[in-house]
Design a protein around this nucleic acid. Structure first.
Length: 578
RNA sequence: GCGCUCUUAGCUCAGCUGGAUAGAGCAACAGCCUUCUAAGCUGUGGGUCGGGCGUUCGAAUCGCCCAGAGCGCGCCA
């Protein structure tokens, strides 16, 4: 089916076409003045500018034709030239009936599906995920779900940080403390992580230690058997730990490749750059200079003076692999926006090397999670907060508001814990996703355990209440019927439902999950008003009862789908302790 | 120094080709549970959209200047 808004746009487009107006202005948007109209078209204003004509006259011409349409209740031209459109209730109702039959809720699949490779997550060996990793995982996963719902073929790759200097630092630290690498394979993630922390400190203070670490890194990359063997263990343990984290976040990765997998290709890229004569050797490093602009554009270091590959080279090589092996039409990096210059450089080199001639490269940068001081968040001891701790904190808060296991029939320990997890994760993810990705936000521990107002649990709660009504309807044999719109809350709710497609489309276009959180919240909010003013099961009129039941079920479907697109679960019931 | 991104209600943030009375949530205050889960609903108060100039019939939105903040700028990733 075509969404209501799209149907309306078709009508307008036809009028523009027959009137000889540029069709690019032929579209409506939900009215800014709900007291005056359901939708407004500002096209006359834009047209007037290009045609140098009176906007009200153009608007009136369009409005007069539109008024003849059977689905339109009233059309008026107001103010400087807004075309205000009010739809007939029957048209909206019929649209809802169609939407209820459509498993995609009015969202047609794209006619031009792409192969999209998504690079998000970005975990590193020996580092547990912390709050800084939250955004990439949560935003990336949401965009992944949205793009694949829209119909693209999305492949996600975690792009594990497993090949840089930190590898040499850890190995060096272990050798420094143990004398050799003989005990490496007995170390778990905690000890590897603590080796890394000590390595970090030591290399900062001691230039000699840093030098040794770089040397070991280079030897590892050149295939030193002893180092490779130890490294394999570090990597395996880290991947296993990180997988657990991502499972809990419900972030899905099709590929678990890492920087190390691009190693061979890195060598080829260096060769290619040399053949094309775009690289040069400077101070012992192999670099590519980029065209001067008005902004600082440092050269890209392919090979460091110690012989190790630079991380930019890894990203460049990975682009080639994604284009060659995965046939990527588009590669999306969901990475901290502080890396924007890095990606600008990498994309520029990819272009110079002609390794991705028809692939769109895009960096979706997100802002940092900041502390009260406006700088990237640090705990009191100067460290970063573990993601696991954040999740536990939120779970504790949820758990304390829940009934104890077996207090509610069918809810033993396992069921309660599942519910606790679903609600806590909803609170955390929604809290993060409701912010525009590009802007950072101030970290407040309390925010991740809030369940009132514009939060994930609020939306889950709306769904749970609808589920409850539907269960009741099933028990008493009441079934859904044709939608009838008579109350203003029914009308408002229907119009919001009709906007689902628009919300999905905008989220996909802008790769901006906050558009979806906003929509989901507004829909849940309008439903809550409806819930209070329009009784369903106790409605006296059977037709109204059947209509409202169907409307409620449709809201549930839309909210569940919206939450799915955000990576959030929708529990059947929301329980609360007395 | 150069560049990028920002500055909207007490706090955290929206604001869809430039448009009509700039919107939410939280916090505050006042109501609503014998009625589909009160994690809810209804209402009230609260903003010279950082400052200035300009473009325009019209600017939170576009341009320039200023002030303030964050981030980035060759061998960490």
């Amino acid at each position: 089916m075509l969404s209501l808004e799209k149907q309306l746009n078709e009508k307008i487009k036809n009028i523009f076409k027959t009137s000889g107006f540029d069709e690019k202005f032929a579209f409506v948007k939900p009215s800014d003045r709900p007291d005056l109209s359901d939708f407004q078209c500002n096209g006359a204003l834009a047209l007037a500018k290009t045609l140098k004509q009176n906007p009200r006259e153009i608007g009136q011409k369009i409005a007069d034709t539109l008024a003849l349409d059977n689905d339109i209740a009233t059309v008026s031209v107001d103010g400087p030239g807004f075309i205000n459109i009010k739809l007939k209730n029957e048209f909206i109702a019929q649209n809802m009936d169609e939407m209820a039959l459509d498993s995609r809720l009015g969202c047609a699949k794209t006619e031009t599906p792409y192969n999209v490779v998504m690079d998000f997550g970005g975990p590193n060996v020996a580092k547990a995920l912390h709050v800084g990793h939250l955004r990439s995982a949560v935003i990336g996963e949401s965009i992944r779900r949205v793009l694949s719902f829209v119909g693209h073929n999305v492949i996600s790759d975690v792009h594990f940080g497993d090949w840089g200097t930190p590898m040499g630092m850890i190995l060096a630290q272990i050798i420094f403390e143990d004398g050799d690498l003989s005990k490496v394979e007995t170390y778990d993630i905690e000890s590897i992580s603590s080796f890394y922390k000590r390595a970090n400190l030591r290399c900062k203070e001691n230039e000699q230690a840093a030098e040794t670490a770089r040397m070991i890194t280079a030897e590892l990359q050149n295939g030193n058997k002893e180092y490779v063997k130890a490294w394999k263990h570090l990597r395996a343990v880290s991947v296993a730990a990180v997988k657990e984290n991502y499972d809990e976040l419900d972030a899905h990765f099709d590929l678990w490749l890492g920087e190390s997998d691009a190693h061979e290709m890195c060598g080829k890229i260096v060769k290619l750059a040399n053949e094309k004569s775009i690289s040069e050797v400077d101070e012992g490093a192999t670099i590519i200079r980029l065209p001067e602009t008005n902004k600082p554009m440092p050269p890209v270091i392919l090979v460091k003076s110690d012989g190790g590959f630079g991380y930019q080279l890894t990203d460049i090589a990975t682009i080639k692999m994604r284009v060659d092996d995965l046939k990527a039409d588009e590669i999306i990096y969901v990475v901290d926006k502080r890396q924007s210059l890095h990606f600008e450089q990498v994309f520029a080199v990819a272009k110079m090397l002609e390794i991705a001639p028809s692939t769109k490269l895009e960096h979706v940068g997100f802002g940092t999670v900041n502390g009260q001081d406006g700088k990237p968040f640090k705990t009191r001891d100067g460290g970063v907060m573990n993601l696991k701790d954040l999740i536990e904190m939120s779970k504790d808060k949820v758990r304390s508001s829940m009934p104890k296991p077996n207090e509610v029939e069918g809810y033993g320990k396992a069921e309660i814990e599942k519910l606790v997890s679903e609600v806590a994760m909803a609170a955390i993810k929604f809290q993060d996703l409701k912010n525009t990705a590009a802007s950072g936000y101030v970290f407040d521990l309390e925010d991740f355990a809030k369940f009132d107002g514009k939060t994930g649990p609020y939306i889950q709660y709306a769904i749970a209440r609808i589920n409850s009504i539907i269960r009741k309807a099933d028990e008493s044999g009441v079934s859904q019927g044709k939608i009838i719109i008579s109350e203003s809350d029914e009308r408002a709710l229907s119009l919001k439902l009709a906007a689902f497609e628009n919300a999905v489309a905008r989220t996909a276009e802008q790769k901006e999950p906050s558009i979806m959180t906003d929509y989901a919240y507004n829909l849940a909010q309008i439903f809550s008003s409806f819930y209070n003013t329009c009784p369903i099961m106790s409605a006296v009129d059977n037709e109204i009862k059947a209509s409202r039941l169907k409307l409620a079920a449709l809201v549930r479907d839309a909210l569940k789908q919206a939450l799915y697109l955000l990576g959030i679960e929708a529990p059947e019931k929301m329980l609360k302790a007395n």
